Computed example of a mutant assay.
Amino acid sequence: MKSATTSMNLRAPHLARKGDELSLGFYKFVFMTPTILVMMLVVAAPLLYSFYLSLHEYIVTYGQGPFIGLGNYVLLMGREFAGVSWVTMKLTVSVVVIEFLIAFSLALLLNQSWLRFREFYLVILMLPMLMTPVAVALMFRLMFNPNLGIINWLLSLVGIPAQGWFGDPNLALATVIFVDAWTETSLMLIMLYAGLRSLPQDPVEAARIDGANAWQILRHVTLPTLRPVILVTLLIRMITALKSYDLIYILTQGGPGKTTETISFYAYRLGFRFLDIGQAAAVSFILLIAVVALTLVLLRILRER
């Protein structure tokens, strides 16, 4: 009897802790329930309904048609969708590479101990990020205007003829990339600069004592330790670049022809100009799958590193 009582006494704290954990888990679930319900209403419900529409023939003027399965996705596998996908890929790769090189160079410069007025420069470089993309697009649309824009006026001063920046198929995408780089580099700069400021200085000091120069420190110390920040920065920028829409809408409307039409703008054109909601939903889900796949790949690389 005494042994049984002792055993119960030994088990009592364990049972109490288990009961506390169950109670804590229950309260966590209760407090998270409103958030879960809101997320289901705001995110999950529209997402599922969009997927449902992508499996049906749905023209706004005629209403919802019959279930066609993957018919909308099959219809998209043509030359037009391949063209907008290629434009999206060129735009994404170009802006990510250009913006990363500029942002990383500026972050390294701002991180130098000898630099004075660092905060002032940082505030100036953050200004493009604080402006709305629509305002930036309207500003550059005026600046690149072939007749009244200041860019062509400056070129005329050195004898260069006026250019149709958004009307020339050879210049339109490059001009959009330039505007995008001016707008979005600030975000990458802030993330990379914060990563540089958070790096431990002991490895850098040890490398200097061993006689390493600035390039060797950057290559063998800074870049390896900063790799997680770089991967996260590239991931975020790639996702936003794949979804590019606002600058395209204001600057070029996908033209001239379709030289600057991205997947997001293609979905808008199908849904709001041609009123084909089924195909527009299918395009959106293809873009969603691409973004999720890219995210999983980069997160796997991040875990391995």
Results as ranks from 00 to 15, higher is better:
Leu75Arg: 14
Tyr62Glu: 15
Leu302Glu: 10
Arg116Ser: 11
Pro13Leu: 04
Pro169Phe: 03
Asp276Leu: 11
Ala44Tyr: 08
Thr6Gln: 15
Val291Pro: 05
Arg208His: 11
Ile124Met: 14
Gly65Phe: 09
Val136Leu: 11
Leu10Lys: 14
Ala241Asn: 04
Lys2Arg: 15
Tyr49Glu: 13
Leu251Asn: 03
Asn9Leu: 15
Gln163Gly: 00
Pro133Tyr: 07
Ile190Val: 14
Arg118Lys: 15
Val42Trp: 12
Ala107Leu: 07
Leu108Cys: 02
Leu235Glu: 04
Leu115Tyr: 04
Leu24His: 05
Glu21Phe: 10
Trp153Thr: 12
Ile177Glu: 04
Phe81Gly: 05
Thr132Glu: 10
Gly83Val: 02
Val123Ile: 11
Lys28Tyr: 12
Glu80Asp: 14
Gln253Tyr: 05
Met191Arg: 02
Lys258Arg: 11
Thr225Gly: 07
Arg219Asn: 03
Val176Pro: 08
Arg116Asp: 01
Gln216Ile: 00
Phe166Thr: 03
Ile209Lys: 09
Pro46Ser: 07
Tyr249Gln: 11
Gly257Tyr: 03
Val179Cys: 02
Ala181Gln: 12
Arg219Val: 01
Val95Thr: 15
Met238Pro: 00
Leu108Asn: 12
Glu80Val: 13
Ala137His: 03
Lys90Val: 08
Ile150Phe: 10
Val283Thr: 14
Val158Ala: 10
Tyr62His: 14
Met1Trp: 02
Ala45Ile: 13
Pro13Ile: 03
Val134Gly: 06
Ile286Ser: 03
Arg11Ala: 13
Asp180Arg: 12
Trp153Pro: 05
Thr92Leu: 02
Trp165Asp: 05
Ile286Pro: 08
Leu287Cys: 05
Phe31Thr: 11
Leu127Ser: 05
Val204Tyr: 05
Lys90Asp: 02
Gly278Gln: 04
Ala12Val: 02
Trp114Lys: 07
Leu37Pro: 06
Leu199Asp: 09
Gly149His: 06
Val291Glu: 08
Leu275Thr: 15
Ser54Val: 03
Ala207Tyr: 01
Ala181Ser: 14
Leu110His: 08
Val136Met: 14
Leu41Cys: 08
Leu251Lys: 06
Thr225Cys: 06
Leu299Asn: 14
Val42Arg: 01
Ala290Gly: 01
Leu189Trp: 02
Thr233Val: 01
Ile160Leu: 12
Tyr27Phe: 11
Leu187Ala: 11
Ile289Asn: 00
Leu223His: 00
